[in-house]
């Protein structure tokens, strides 16, 4: 039993105006989930004017519960930051796990108005966005 190398998920970032696109290439699982969360978080903190975060999932291989947890965490943070999250080019296995866990609607059609009416997340937003210089790349 060997632990796969942590770099079996590759992230490529493309910035355009108020949009950031992160392309995922590889498995999103127990070993790599943090990598994606950290990258997304870093983008959110580094760009106050960001409007859209696109996760391009065409190259996504396996996704497990920790991978889904990473997407949920990112969704929570984008919502809190008033950024719209787009999961694009989703492979069948991603749609399957989203539907199975009842998170499909939540992750593919997030509220465009952001954090409205969600106090827990608002609180996080204040803690989280402007005051996390350490989270930047």
């Amino acid at each position: 039993m060997t632990t796969p190398p942590p770099d079996h998920l590759r992230l490529t970032r493309v910035d355009t105006g108020d949009r950031v696109r992160i392309e995922l290439d590889g498995d999103l699982d127990h070993d790599t989930a943090d990598l994606l969360v950290n990258e997304a978080t870093a983008q959110l903190s580094a760009r106050p004017g960001l409007g859209h975060l696109h996760l391009h999932c065409g190259g996504l291989g396996m996704i497990d519960s920790m991978g889904l947890s990473a997407l949920l965490m990112i969704s929570r943070r984008t919502t809190a930051a008033g950024v719209r999250l787009h999961l694009e080019d989703r492979p069948a296995n991603l749609d399957r796990i989203l539907r199975l866990t009842g998170t499909f609607d939540h992750l593919t059609a997030p509220s465009p108005t952001g954090a409205a009416g969600d106090s827990a997340y608002e609180e996080e937003a204040t803690v989280f966005r402007p005051t996390r210089p350490d989270a930047g790349t």
């Binding site: 947890s69 949920l72 965490m73 929570r76 199975l100 866990t101 827990a120 997340y121 609180e123 996080e124």
Partner: peptide, 11 residues
Amino acid sequence: LLNSHHARFAT
């Protein structure tokens, strides 16, 4: 279970 620090869920 909701916790703002992580999204460790259960099914």
